[in-house]
Design a protein around this nucleic acid. Structure first.
Length: 705
RNA sequence: CGCGAGAUAGAGCAGCGGUAGCUCGUCGGGCUCAUAACCCGAAGGUCGGAGGUUCGAUCCCUCCUCUCGCAACCA
């Protein structure tokens, strides 16, 4: 096989506005780490870079939320995230950060090169400007009345109540959140990356050159983007948090975060080179470097379309592959920071690794399950029961048990020493089993080269399974009952036992090598038990039968993994539910706090005929439930007397489903059916808004009462 | 008809033109060195739905349904 001269492996830069969850881990960091560990075991020249992404408007916004500064936010999250990775065995060669001066220089140089080569376009546009704060306003910093639902605290990019995405120009009565003043329109100049100029290149490079080796999900998304028409994308923004645009005429402007963030891979490589006395340039400029980006699917457009265009213009190499993963759901629902439906790395570390019965084996247990269910071809799902099953039945019962029983038997039947191999006595089964070791090695190798991590891991476990089967057929514990007249095991039996356990122990050593990229802590522990140095983990040793020296005394067996108890699973599920409840209460409180005491503007006048078209009926809500994955929707069943209808209503922020069952409501019954989130809504519940923006049902006052 | 990806046993996935398979789980039997594995056997699928091409379709074509993404936060 022809290997590239060197590798540069990147994992998506985590955005430093909060803790990261296991979806991030499974999507980008874990596969990247596994791949890198494999390459390093192959003694290939590889650098694995990552770091915190610390710019963009979301950071100052998070700062406002936490009542602190943007700098304090990134200084808080950067080290925590770095430590989380370390605890889970994600071993970057460098974990850098985009706030570092080196990165600022690198990104500015990058911009300058593109700008000097006339690869950027300059466009002028009118943007909102806050005179008292003397600054242009990012979309998120403008609030106003939503043109769609009349909510007064809609953001410039989206209304939080009706969910409609907006541009600041659409807002009625825009207000700057910096000062509370009304912003003015002011002309501003921005630099754009004209992606449309590179359409031919992208088509050729992605859809033709990589048609065979990139994942179909990645290709599909790229095609969708290209076919949709590529447009120039703004490279700069009017903001004070970020990297200054290196031009005198661009005062008060910074590089747009999407532009500077991927350049962070280059800065990180430079920093690594400084620390290790290496030259960073070949890793980005030499054609014999293989560049691979590990990301989640939301990042495909940046890593497959935008960043490659930037790299090409700058004269750097292009990624050889971008093995993006799909998403990982959690217990039946999408992971979401805002809804608190997530498992953060920190939580897992606290609840498992840092417990007395924890330790690094629990890091490997998570790595195992996340790899086993990695969303390589489609979205997958993390469940605590699944985690328990995978850990208990595969890691503990098959893998751990094989190593344990091999060691236990060796101590019992071979005087705690590695027994000799009597080559002349090898039978067909012995030979087939030995052959299986190198077959497994080749399979794992080939699968890893294709980024098929879950299949590769299966092959590793499968070798342990083969070991169990082999041992079972040989039954050394039965052979040990063949005694001579002195009560000793007969020589013939002992030789059979020796061969069996010799092969089993060599399988153990091979398992350490094969499992090392996936479960590094476990590999290290196996080395300890077998009294071998970590150097044997080098991949060239895989498939070999001479890893353990005959006659060597090994350590007493220790268990590699512990079982996950039912109580732990129950505890985690309960914790998840509680967190969800907490966040529901918090988000339910948002409209009240956010609603200013201003009067909602009146809508345009209508005539009587408009009103007369509406067929109003009285109904009773018979059931109400939250619509999945929609913050604002409730699915209602409303009994109208003559029929019961399903009506989807955007009132979840205002009412608890349980509280409104049985309520009488006014229903517009002749509203055209409309599908929302896959549920057909037949009608509309009448609501009226009070002066503060709060919704109320239009009540029916019954004649009888 | 916006575009892309997906829908196959209880769960997770593979197969992609010729008697539907793997891992886990469940049930029954055997064995026991092991946090028990392993062996034998069993249950469980009209391969999302409807048409079409074909001697023959899970696999190819058309349409439809649903899920996820592109499109707040977000791998």
């Amino acid at each position: 096989m022809n290997h590239p001269k060197r590798y540069l492996i990147t994992a998506a830069l985590p955005y430093a506005n909060g803790l990261k969850h296991i979806g991030h881990l499974a999507g980008a960091y874990l596969p990247a780490d596994t791949y890198v560990r494999y390459l390093k075991a192959q003694k290939r020249d590889v650098v694995f870079v990552c770091g915190s992404d610390e710019h963009g408007t979301a950071i100052p916004i998070q700062a406002t939320k936490e009542g602190t500064t943007a700098q304090a936010i990134i200084d808080k999250y950067h080290p925590i995230i770095a430590q989380n990775f370390k605890d889970l065995g994600i071993a970057f060669d460098i974990y850098h950060r985009t706030s570092d001066p080196l990165h600022h220089e690198t990104a500015q140089e990058f911009f300058t090169v593109l700008n000097n080569n006339a690869d950027l376009e300059i466009k002028e546009s009118e943007q909102y400007f806050d005179e008292s704060a003397n600054s242009f306003l990012a979309d998120r910093y403008i609030k106003g009345t939503c043109p769609n639902c009349a909510y007064e605290s809609a953001f410039g990019d989206q209304c939080e109540r009706c969910g409609k995405s907006l541009s600041p120009d659409e807002l009625i009565n825009p207000v700057s959140t910096l000062s509370g003043n009304k912003p003015i329109k002011k002309a501003t100049k921005h630099w754009y990356l004209p992606l449309d100029r590179h359409e031919d290149f992208l088509r050729e490079w992605i859809l033709k050159d990589h048609a065979a080796d990139w994942r179909s999900t990645v290709l599909g998304q790229c095609k969708s983007w290209i076919d949709g028409g590529l447009q120039a994308r703004a490279v700069t923004r009017d903001l004070d948090w970020g990297i200054k645009v290196p031009l005198a005429e661009a005062d008060g402007k910074v590089l747009y975060v999407w532009f500077d963030a991927p350049i962070g891979y280059i800065s990180a490589t430079k920093q690594w080179a400084i620390e290790n006395d290496k030259d960073w340039k070949p890793y980005w400029q030499s054609k014999d470097t293989k560049l691979v980006h590990f990301i989640g699917k939301d990042n495909i457009v940046f890593h497959c379309i935008i960043f490659p265009v930037m790299l090409k213009l700058h004269g750097d190499i292009l990624p050889d592959n971008v093995p993006a993963n799909e998403f990982m759901n959690l217990e039946g629902d999408k992971m979401s920071t805002s809804r608190n439906w997530k498992l953060e790395m920190q939580d897992y570390i606290d609840d498992f690794i840092n417990k007395e019965n924890g330790g690094p084996q629990l890091a490997d247990a998570l790595r195992y399950y996340l790899t086993q269910i990695a969303p390589e071809t489609k979205d997958s799902e993390f469940t605590w029961k699944g985690f328990q099953d995978a850990n208990n039945s595969e890691l503990v019962n098959i893998f751990g048990n094989f190593i344990n029983r091999a060691l236990v038997l060796m101590h019992k039947l071979c005087k705690s020493k590695v027994p000799p191999l009597h080559v002349d006595l090898l039978d067909e089964l012995d030979k087939a089993t030995i052959a299986e070791i190198s077959t497994a090695t080749k399979k794992v190798e080939s699968l890893l080269e294709q980024y098929k991590f879950r299949d590769a891991l299966f092959e590793v476990i499968n070798l342990a399974r083969t070991g169990n089967q082999y041992m079972q057929k040989k039954e050394p514990w039965i052979l040990a009952k063949q005694l001579d007249e002195n009560g000793q095991i007969t020589i013939e039996a002992q030789q059979q036992i020796n061969n069996c356990l010799h092969i089993c122990l060599q399988i153990c050593a091979n398992l350490a090598i094969l499992v090392n990229p996936f479960l590094p802590f476990t590999a290290t522990k196996i080395c300890y038990l077998l009294k071998v140095v970590p150097k044997i983990l080098e991949w060239e040793n895989a498939g070999k039968l001479h890893l353990l020296r005959v006659g060597y005394t090994l350590r007493p067996p220790e268990l590699l993994f512990r079982k996950i108890e039912d109580t732990e699973v129950a505890y985690q599920i309960e914790k998840l539910q509680k967190a969800l409840e907490t966040s529901k209460q918090e988000s339910a409180a948002i409209p009240e706090i956010a609603a200013e005491k201003t009067i909602a503007p009146l809508k345009p006048e209508i005539v009587f005929d408009d009103f007369a078209k509406i067929d109003l009926r009285v109904g009773t809500i018979v059931s109400a439930e939250k619509v999945e994955k929609a913050d604002k929707l409730l699915k209602l069943e409303v009994d109208l007397g003559f029929e019961t209808r399903t009506i989807v209503s955007g009132i979840a922020m205002h009412f608890n489903p349980a509280d409104i069952v049985g309520k009488q409501v006014s229903v517009v019954v002749n509203l055209a059916p409309r599908k929302m989130r896959g549920i057909e809504s037949n009608g509309m519940i009448l609501m009226a808004e009070d002066a503060s923006g709060k919704l109320h049902f239009i009540n029916i006052i019954s004649d009888e009462e």
